[in-house]
């Protein structure tokens, strides 16, 4: 039915997948400056108190492989850096908040400063050093 189209589609698909994979590996979980309007989350939004100096908000879901590792990393960071709270939110039970923050993936980690302003945002499993660096920016800024 298709002649050479099938093999061409297979080759093109694999080429695009390699490209996307390489980009994902580079960018996944890297905290970025929060874009667009300034977003501020309150203790009421989070269902938990803000940290004294900063807060790490992790959105998780039921079918999320890297969420567990992300929880471990963020817990290690909050144990290490005083005044920082880790709040984990089940995305499914807070869909309104997920939509308003335009969260598309789990895990997504928001780094909030002491006032609850979203300073940085990482989608995908972040590296520990990157989280610590982002926290530094949130505490200073």
């Amino acid at each position: 039915m298709t002649g050479m189209i099938g093999p061409a589609v297979a080759a093109a698909t694999l080429a695009v997948a390699v490209l996307v994979g390489v980009v994902l590996r580079r960018r996944d979980g890297v905290p970025r400056e929060a874009r667009g309007a300034v977003e501020r989350l309150t203790a009421g939004d989070l269902g938990a108190e803000l940290g004294e100096r900063a807060t790490l908000v992790q959105f998780s879901s039921a079918f999320c492989q890297p969420c567990r590792a992300t929880r471990r990393i963020l817990t290690e960071v909050t144990d290490m850096v005083p005044g920082v709270a880790h709040v984990e939110i089940d995305a499914e039970s807070r869909l309104e908040l997920v939509r308003s923050l335009n969260i598309l993936r789990t895990p997504t980690v928001l780094v909030l400063d002491r006032s609850g302003r979203v300073v940085k945002r990482a989608s995908g499993q972040p590296r520990k050093a990157d989280v610590i660096a982002a926290l530094g920016a949130a505490v200073e800024g």
């Binding site: 879901s61 039921a62 079918f63 999320c64 492989q65 995305a91 499914e92 997920v98 939509r99």
Partner: peptide
């Protein structure tokens, strides 16, 4: 990278 897993939240949203 589990793309199928990523579909979950998008579908739920």
């Amino acid at each position: 990278f589990c793309l199928g897993c990523e579909m979950y939240l998008i579908i739920r949203r």
